[in-house]
Design a protein around this nucleic acid. Structure first.
Length: 578
RNA sequence: GCGCCUGUAGCUCAGCUGGAUAGAGCAACUGCCUUCUAAGCAGUGGGUCAGGAGUUCGAAUCUCUUCAGGCGCGCCA
């Protein structure tokens, strides 16, 4: 219907006296015809006259009068109005308005989906937490966001691949390995533990597998004359452990890594997040092998003159994207930086042929965006292909007190704790209830409370209530809910607002997809639920006339479907009973 | 110092590709359960959209600027 109206509007614009071609296309690009915010403004509304008025420097109201006549003359609408500064508000014929419901029933679980993305390939890389311990609640937010985003993008016609980048090659893994070994040597070392090592309970569990294998002659030498600086201390321990027995080192390292990756996979799976790909940093190879991916990406950049040698190190000129200084790829001692791996990793992603790459990063990495964009450009791809979405930290509050977390100290509230505490669905919901790039205060007591302030249950309650009415309806009338009913001329209007609201859903999903903002769906569902609860209180459905009940059940079925589909996009299962 | 983000009701936040009277919830006060789930509904009060300037028929939304808060600025990862 909106397409039909837009066609007429475009004809109208082109027919304006003396209009230039440029203006026509400018107006057509800018104006919006959409489902009205509220029924007060009809079913469909357009701002085209105001846009045209501003571009043509003419009076919007005058344009509105002409357009109004033209649309009225089509005689396919119940009513056409001019309102405010020049809006055209259109009221559909009853039959057309109610046909929205049929549309929902036909599309069912697919109501809200579209093929807008035209099958373009999108890769979303998210979580990618260092494999040095279980996920904490900060990672949970990225997980919920990335996963919801991928569901929304899939739903709007993109082909989506979810990937986790495992940093298994860096210093963090060395610290992890050292932590495990030192923990196993607890007795020999009289309980000594380096300041910067990981302390969590899981460290001990990982090490237990080795038992007697981890024994060194004169182990106590390890801790003699250690530097007092925490960083230097752990470095020295790593070096001497590797020197003492590289085989044990590698064995412990590989084992620890695989245990922790499994741990992370389990946490994510309990959170309903499944990745398509697990990409290991180590697969990019070493800088020492000339044909490894990491080496060849540096070679490519050097050939292009963007990478260059200076002071014994290899640098990348990243100023093309407004980075404030050049960045080192290879240190003067020959070791690659983390940035070099990342450049090689992004080259690998680009070579895999995605149309769009989305990186979901913690907000503390925002200083890193420009240099990675610059590297993508340097590799010969437009930086517009890469979108970095930042996810801010989430602060957790319990009984009004902030919960602290730190992987290193081992004393933290993990994602698993959160899921055990309030459930995966409620946790996902609250993570998604605010724009990802803004600070989130997550109140655990609220998430468990049974008040209206707890929006998660408020929405679920609406779904459950409809489920329960349907149940009762089927039992008392022995009828099934009509799969399609003849409601063309039913004049019962108390569900109109509900029908109007659910008709907004497909466009909302699209908006959420285009702006990469799952939280829009959360707020939409809250509004829809509020309309439903209000209707529910004012109207006793099952004591209506038979004809009206049929329409109401049909409409509520649509509401239920819309809530279920919306929750589905967030990765949340709707409740049938509460 | 430079860069990014934020500032909307007492509190927590929506609204930001400019559009109709700036919206919710909580808190305060009033009502509604012999009827489909009261984890609900209806109502009242509460606003310099941080301040200032600009662009526009129209600004919470765009631009500039001031103030306040958060974060990031390694040959760390």
């Amino acid at each position: 219907m909106i397409n039909k109206i837009n066609k007429e509007i475009k004809l109208f614009i082109s027919s304006i006296d003396g209009i230039e071609k440029n203006s026509v296309s400018e107006i057509c690009e800018k104006f919006k015809t959409s489902i009205s915010e509220s029924l007060k403004n009809g079913h469909i509304t357009t701002n085209v006259c105001m846009i045209a008025g501003s571009i043509l420097k003419s009076n919007p109201k005058k344009l509105a009068t002409d357009l109004h006549k033209r649309i009225s003359d089509l005689k396919i609408f119940e009513n056409v109005d001019i309102a405010g500064p020049g809006f055209i508000n259109i009221t559909l014929k009853r039959e057309d308005f109610l046909s929205t419901l049929n549309n929902i029933y036909e599309k069912n679980v697919n109501y809200g989906s579209s093929d807008f993305g035209e099958g373009k390939k999108v890769q979303i890389e998210f979580v990618s937490a260092n494999p040095t311990g279980p996920l904490h609640v900060g990672h949970g937010r990225g997980a919920a966001y990335g996963d919801a985003l991928s569901r929304i993008l899939k739903n709007t016609g993109y082909e989506v691949e979810k990937e986790y980048y495992v940093n298994d090659a860096g210093r963090q893994i060395d610290i992890l390995t050292a932590s495990v070994i030192i923990r196993m040597l607890k007795k020999e070392l009289n309980g000594f533990f380096p300041q910067n090592a990981y302390r969590g309970e899981y460290i001990e569990i990982i090490g237990e597998k080795f038992g007697e294998e981890i024994r060194f002659n004169e182990a106590s030498n390890l801790i003699n004359n250690l530097p007092s600086d925490a960083e230097d201390e752990i470095n020295e321990i790593i070096t001497s452990l590797k020197t003492k027995d590289l085989m044990i080192w590698n064995k412990v390292k590989n084992h620890s890594l695989s245990i922790i990756v499994e741990l992370i996979k389990e946490d994510l799976s309990n959170f309903n997040v499944l990745f398509d790909e697990w990409f290991y940093e180590s697969s990019l190879g070493s800088i020492k092998e000339s044909n490894s991916e990491i080496s060849s990406s540096i070679t490519k950049l050097s050939k292009d003159g963007i990478g260059y040698k200076k002071d014994g190190a290899i640098w990348l000129n990243t100023e093309s994207c407004g980075d404030d200084k050049h960045r080192v790829l290879v240190r003067k001692d020959g070791r690659a930086t983390y940035f070099a791996s990342d450049v090689a990793y992004h080259k690998n992603k680009i070579d895999r042929g995605f149309d769009k790459l989305i990186n979901v990063w913690g907000a503390d990495h925002h200083g890193y965006i420009k240099r990675i964009e610059a590297s993508v450009e340097a590799l010969g791809t437009s930086k517009d292909k890469l979108i970095v979405k930042l996810v801010q930290f989430a602060n957790l509050f319990k009984k009004g007190k902030k919960i602290k977390m730190s992987t290193r100290s081992g004393d933290f509230y993990s994602l698993k704790d959160l899921i055990d505490d309030i459930g995966a669905d409620a946790a996902r919901f609250y993570y998604l209830s605010k724009q990802a790039d803004q600070h989130l205060d997550f109140d655990l007591d609220l998430a468990k409370s049974d008040s209206k302030e707890n929006i998660f249950y408020y929405i679920q309650y609406a779904h459950a209530r409809i489920f329960s009415i349907e149940d009762k309806y089927k039992k008392t009338t022995k009828k099934q809910i009509a799969s399609k009913t003849d409601i063309k001329n039913n004049s019962y209007s108390k569900c109109d607002e509900l029908i109007h609201e659910i008709s907004k859903f497909p466009n909302l999903v699209l908006k959420s997809s285009n702006s990469l903002q799952p939280h829009l769906i959360v707020f939409y569902l809250r509004d829809l639920s509020q309309l439903f609860h209000s209707f529910y209180n004012d109207n006793h459905v099952l004591s209506e006339s038979e004809e009206n009940i049929e329409l109401i059940m049909f409409c509520l079925g649509g509401v239920k479907q819309t809530i279920a589909n919306g929750l589905g996009l967030l990765g949340i299962t709707p409740m049938k009973k509460m």
